[in-house]
């Protein structure tokens, strides 16, 4: 039995320990906000936070995630109020939206580490792909989220 801490809750899962975290989230816990895109950590659709850092869950064995704090898109905020989510809504960033949970989780982790990233920082840290082509609004969204977060801190 795997024991995982997800979005602050401890969950027990009867899955093979080698099962990637992504599939434990999706098929065992019905947390389907985290998406499958490639299975080889190439596209970023499956990005979650492990101890606050962006991790591609499609290649992380669930056993290795035990004892770690895992956050999925469902746990980023309870009401889409995270600055990245606010910025995404404000700019209408998503198109089809399938890659966006991963894009949002990667962006949130970047801002946690670097509250006012430059374009170069964004280029090197956000390597998720989006086939619809939301990239310009992702970039703008990260800058906007940084502003929202900064204002929130002042308030």
């Amino acid at each position: 039995m795997l024991k995982l801490t997800i979005n602050g809750e401890t969950r027990e899962v009867d899955a093979d320990p080698s099962t990637p975290l992504l599939w434990v989230l999706r098929d065992h816990l019905d947390l389907t906000g985290t998406k499958y895109g490639c299975g080889i950590a190439s596209c970023g659709a499956c990005t979650v936070h492990v101890n606050g850092r962006a991790v591609r869950s499609c290649v992380l064995p669930a056993s290795a995630a035990q004892g770690q704090q895992i956050t999925t898109i469902e746990g980023l905020s309870s009401d889409a109020s995270h600055p990245v989510q606010q910025a995404w809504v404000e700019l209408d960033t998503p198109q089809c939206g399938y890659c966006q949970p991963g894009m949002i989780m990667a962006s949130a982790a970047l801002l946690e580490e670097n509250p006012s990233p430059t374009d170069d920082d964004i280029n090197s840290k956000i390597t998720n792909i989006c086939r619809c082509g939301t990239l310009p609004r992702v970039r703008e969204g990260i800058h906007r989220a940084a502003e929202i977060a900064a204002k929130g801190e002042q308030a």
């Binding site: 999925t72 898109i73 989510q85 939206g97």
Partner: peptide, 11 residues
Amino acid sequence: TREKVDGSLRY
């Protein structure tokens, strides 16, 4: 948009 930023939209 909203359901696309919180993971709630079911594809």
